[in-house]
Design a binder for these strands. Sequence first.
DNA 1: GTGACTCATGAGTCTTTGTGATAG
DNA 2: ACTATCACTTTGACTCATGAGTCA
Length: 674
Amino acid sequence: MYYITLIEFLDDTASGPSESTTVDTRLPQDTIEITFSNMPVMKERVRGTTKYDREAALAAHRAHLLCWLAYWRYRHGHISSPLVQASSLSLVPLELSDSYRRALAESQRDANLKRKRAADDDWFVHWLQHMVEWWRARFQHVIVDGSTDWTDHAAPETAAATHGLNKTNSNRGRMEECTRLLNCLQQNMVALADSTLLFVALLRMLGVRTRFVVSLQPMSFSVAATKKILAATEMQTASDRSQKGQVESKPTKRRKTNKSQNATSTKANQPQMAWCEVLHPTEGHWVAVDLARGLVNEPTRMEEHGPLPYVTAFDIGRRIKDVSRRYASQWAAKTLRLRPPMGKAGRDWWLDTLAIYAERDPSEVDVREDAELLSHELSEKMPTTVSEFNNHPLYALERHLKKFEILSPREPVIGHIRGEPIYPRSCVKQLHTAEAWLKEGRQIKKGEMPVKEVKSRAVTLLSRREQVMAQMEGYEKLSGLYGYWQTEPYAAPPVVSGKIPKNGYGNIDLFQPEMLPPGGVHLPQRGIAKIARKLDIDYAEAVTGFDFQSRHCIPVVTGIVVAAENEALVLDAWRAHEHARFEKERSKREKAALKRWRTLLHGISIRDRLQKQYGEKIDDMSVAMDDSGDEDNGSGSTPKSRSLTGKMYATNPPICDNSSDLSTQIQLALVVDL
DNA sequence: GTGACTCATGAGTCTTTGTGATAG
DNA sequence: ACTATCACTTTGACTCATGAGTCA
């Protein structure tokens, strides 16, 4: 025997000249040593994104989003405390609260005058501006935890600990949080989130419907982004660990991060901005109020610090609403793409999640707001790059059309990008082959020609053969595609005097229930075709789909179609046949059971006779036989039982000591078995 | 820094009606 | 003689989305 040792050498350029190195000096004498020089170093193949990676990133994104939602819902809940509301109201200067009441009364008195006023002259916006000025003069917004100048956007778990979310006694935590908010009112410097929450409480006390609005910024659902965050976190953890090990006692300084790390952290953890929305008491629309910058009614400026994919408004009660569209300048082209794509059924997970917090009985204000958000979405400005047009819900470019799509009609052209015409998305139509339409219960109208031809796929042996033949003859086999407007509901030829219309294969297409011919009835029962054949009734096997096996397309047959007048006859015969079949099977089982019991009884009587005749001698013999048998099969059943009754005992061994008891048990067992 | 483009990869979609041997 | 079942070549070619890299 020879031992072969493979010794790898590093690349010459990397590790200098090749040098043999003995791996194990204790190798046997007859060793063959094979040396590879300049062995190419195989580059590790970059692993692509797997389904698991995507699902994990999506789950993390959703979980993170839900954590933020729960966190802000919890904090928003505290401003409904009467103590917090009363304390915040006590701060308002009398002239501000009075001016609101006066202006409101005046505007309600003179509704016509109100309509004539320009937006700049809006009394409510003016009043809000005064309120914001006063508030900003009263409180100074501070940076919390050195994280941002917007709000304390620490991770939910850290923030939860800070605000008492993890208290075992929730009431105690709530009390502490309320006390903390009350303390904020006594101070001049507060965090922006606290300031906004208190401002919301104050306006509500003045009788103005106000929402607390926050831009939730969860981690990205993109796999690449998630991997970057994980890598950055690992690096940070390792760095923290090494620092901790080296200088345990030194006060920690802010770590200097490199450029890439900074970029990652910024992208992964955008600041969570907080502001409020105030309902205009006479106009009925929502006015955005940003305390941080003193902005009133300037929703477009909220996006200046980056896109806002999840702008969530917390209203009185438990109502929560997604109002992102109000603040997105390019909702479909940019902002919406920061959310995971919708499911196959077109369901939006986030909107479904918020549905439980929606107003059950929408008011006029809610209906108006929905209409306004939709109109804002539809009037979105056109994208400026080619890639933004891809899968855009409003616009389309011809280059992004899919194989089974077409532009119809090719007008109107609503613009150009790099010389390419831009069409409304409504011009993009889905196409199918005639067979695919038939599967949906539609047929091509007479005289319609395919609007597009695509290279057909050769799946079955037959189609593959046809494709090869076509290639040899110098042309390509194409499939014609048709649009919905070229189709009509499938009209099956009717059943005439009991004759079922059949296709070229001798059966009937029944991909949809509507494809049933008039005068026909579908009987999906298994084995019913045989009955119809015996009765000499005309029928056709119903093809409900196709199965693909071993490069063959196999039609899936589900029962038959017969004339309606024959339905009862066929069904009665089928029921009679099924009954007879059941009885036959029962009789067969009964016979088999009786046969096995007969064998058992016969065996027992032989055993009894031998016992009486030879006494203990037979026991010794059987024990000896069983011992040898054990080695053969090694099963756990009782050796004595097996030697007498074989298979029967293995499944149902009767326990008995004398023959009279045994016969009683057998009689009982027979009754049960039958 | 941004967008267009190319390439690699993995997941999902589309395809769309046998035949001969053998056992019962 | 007729009927049911099974194995064959134990789908696979293609589209699309996504991410990485390069270039202008």
